[in-house]
Amino acid sequence: MAYKPELLTTAASMEELERLMEAGADAFVIGESRYGARLAGQFTLEMIADAVKLAKPRGVKIYAAINNLIDNAVIESLPAYVSGLAAASVDAIVFGDPAVLMAARANAPGMPLHWNAEMTSTNYATAEYWGRRGATRFVLARELNMEQIVDIKANTKLEIEVQVHGMTNIYHSKRSLVNSYMEHQEEPEKLADSGLERGLYVMEAERPDERFPIYEDEGGTHIMSSGDICILDTLQELLEIGVESLKIEGLMKPIEYNETVVRAYRKVIDAYTADPEGYEFQEEWLDEIRAVQDPKRELNYGFFFKEQVY
């Protein structure tokens, strides 16, 4: 069977979902912040059901995010939420807490489950472990390099998902750190909004070129990477090994930007799969992304070609 990798992205609204579908996305991960972490926008259960209705006829998949670190208060409502997602016919549930796995086993048997613990999904043996417990897909940590990705792909039967574009989360605290700081400065009113849309960032004296977005929501404080991953020009390295899902993170980006990015990756994937042997990257595909990229955020290769020490 011909290899057809999935181009997965996020959506902040129903409008964005439709436009990115149009631009060539094959799948979306959406949800609401009571259950999902760092979502581009809020989709209630009802909206998720609508998204499925919109997507299914076009062969597009909808995955529901329950990737929060779950506390006792949410446990009670999990069974109903999971059943609701199953009734809405979502194509998979994304999870990072074993509590969700247990709720899915009991309330949505047969539902594909994507293990996504972000920075802690780092080796193939752990992928296999969650696979034996019901996970169908392993979402790789962003802090892995190409060699490690190749090795994981070769050693697990699970589908793997790799983020190929956009920002990544680098720090998550349950604390409201921005609000605490403003309180410490005794001017809480000076910064009334510390949410996703506010555009706050932190900078460290020795790294004046790097702006790390920071925001607060009901899950606490999130700090994001200062650059955006973009491996469009080396995407074939992931395509050659048959990575099942390539993710574009659309968090904190305008729809127009995400449209451009989705189109560019669509083009590369289609060109490659049409003729793997004859495939050659065209620099102008990347130029389209460069044209819309915020000049204060560097496009980089993330950890794909890095060696880390410890």
Partner: peptide, 28 residues
């Protein structure tokens, strides 16, 4: 759930390389 060290210093915090970047000072 913190990879500040990975991003600032290429040291893997989840394998023992944490350089305590959370204790540094930042401008907001």
């Amino acid at each position: 759930r913190c990879v500040l060290s990975n991003h600032f210093t290429d040291r893997d915090s989840n394998r023992g390389g944490c350089c305590q970047s959370c204790r540094w000072k930042y401008d907001l």
